[in-house]
Structure formats: C-alpha cells, structure tokens
Design a protein around this nucleic acid. Structure first.
Lengths: 145, 145
DNA sequence: TTGCGTGCAAAGGTTTTGCATGGCA
DNA sequence: TGCCATGCAAAACCTTTGCACGCAA
C-alpha cells in the first residue's frame, strides 16, 4: 500500500532534531522550544502529530515518567542498531532519567518470556528507584525518613 | 513531631475501600464512582488529597500506565507483607495490567544495585510488552505487522 | 488541481488549587 | 473555639481535535 504522504519542511526540521538528539530523550515542548530559539515556529499540534506518526512507525519510542508531566520521546538511532535495547532508570528523588544498557536485563526478559509468557519491550520500560548519587546523599545525611 | 490531623468520615470510607480493593489497582475516579453507586458523595479533590497523603506515607502506591490516562493506585496490604513486592506488566496490545510476583525480579534488583548502584522500587515499576494471550492471538492470526 | 500537512484555537481529560464552609478535637 | 479537612468551581497542565488555509505532488 503506497502511503500517499507529502514531504514537508516541518518533517525535515523534526528529523534534523531527532538526529541531533539521538540517544537523548525529549518532550514535545522541548522540540517546540528548540525551534523557537532558532526563530523557527512549528505548531505544537504538528509536533505531536509527527511524533505520533514516528512512534507508530516504530522510529521513535514514547514513554511516561512522572505524574502528569509531559511524555518523553527518544530516537534510538537509525535502523541498524535495533539490538542496543536499553531501558531507563528513573530516580524518584532527584528526578534524573538514566539509560540502562545491561545484559542481565535481557536475561530477565528471557525469564519473563519462558516462565510468565510475557515479552517485554525494554525501550518503553522505566524502572523507578533511587540512583547512586541520591543513595550516597542519604547515607551522608544519616537516615532522615 | 505530632502531626495534628483529624479523623474524618471520608478517611474511614476511603480506608474501607482500600481494604476491599487490597491487591487490586484503581483510579481516583474509581473511588468516586464506587461511593456514588452507594449514594455516598465524596469530592474528587478530597479523594486526590487523601490518596496523595497515603502515597507520601508509603501506605499505597501510585503508578502511571498509559498516555495521559488516569494514574493507578494500589493498596498492597497491611504493614506486614512488605516483602511481597510485586511489579506490574502492562500489555501494550490488550491493555491488561498483570501482577508480577517473581523471584528473578529480586535477583535483577540485586544486580542493579551491585553493578549499577541503583535501588529499584518494584511496586512502582511497570514493564511494557505483550502478554501471553495476545502473543497467542498473534500466532494464530499469522503475522500481520 | 487534489488532498495531505499545517496552524490556530478550542476542547478534552486528569489533577491541582483558592476559598468559604463544615466538622473534629 | 481553633483549625484541619472538605467541597465546589476554577485553573492548570498536556494532549487531541475541528476547520480553514497553504503547499507538495
């Protein structure tokens, strides 16, 4: 089915942003602000529509972090490095979002499939917890619960 | 610090709901609807405020599933069974939310702590992927990507 | 010329907040 | 009586949608 789609200036701009942000995460608002700072105006609706399209094409990933804060998107890179499947760690204290590239995660995924019949999508999965820095901080301060 | 808090009818009602829903997840709207069906009216603001308080006291857990749909809450039970730390699996296809009680998850948590210095909070962690039922359905239907 | 993509503004849903009132201690 | 908790409505926030216009093919 030959999708009848037009190439537009906004799409190109968005792609250039994706390449620039490869491996980093961003929100729809980040995209808008980025172009605004370059005196380029792209409607936020267009950004959402393009991002949604890219998500459904599997070109970028979308995941949800906090409460009702903005959704995060990420361009994991061009076609080939599909095997670099990282997940994310979200620190509940400092709010930092950390990339996790970890062989053990794949083992765990294998276990989940074998024993629980569930195939995980690591790219969308976020682990909540406390990061190294915050753990150290807590230890130094003694424990004030 | 002796928190000066009052006990209210609404708090009691909410607690009774929590006990009833122990181990199940629910949204703020679920709580409101539950009481409305019993001809009891609790303001949605009160529900959010009470739930927030319980979350910050660690009595219930809050996690985020989909897009911008409502947040899920869960009462994991009274004090003692803290060691039954389950996580959740969210099927991206049928939307089902599945409880995961799994020793391997603890092992993975141990690894994360040892190798990545990150302590996970399984109760808030949601794995995305595809559940058994949907996998079977996909196999039966052949692969329509 | 055709009709997709865009931009604006309005609407949508969930959650938060301000303020007056009600009810616990 | 003092003051926390409640309820209502309005606001805030991110995201989606309707509609007219612009622009790619």
């Amino acid at each position: 089915m030959p999708k009848t789609t037009y190439k537009t200036k906004q799409q190109d701009l968005l792609f250039s942003y994706l390449r620039e942000m490869q491996g980093k995460h961003f929100t729809a608002e980040d995209v808008r602000a980025h172009f605004e700072s370059k005196k380029i105006s792209i409607g936020i609706a267009t950004i959402y529509r393009q991002l949604d399209k890219l998500v459904s094409e599997g070109k970028i990933q979308k995941y949800f972090i906090d409460d009702h804060s903005a959704a995060c998107f990420e361009y994991s890179g061009d076609a080939c490095n599909q095997n670099e499947k990282h997940a994310h760690l979200k620190c509940e204290l400092c709010g930092r979002l950390i990339h996790l590239e970890c062989a053990e995660l794949e083992d765990f995924g294998t276990h989940l499939k074998a024993e629980h019949g569930f195939v995980i999508n690591p790219l969308r999965t976020v682990f909540y917890g406390v990061c190294t820095d915050c753990l150290n901080k807590m230890e130094n301060e003694g424990q004030n619960e």
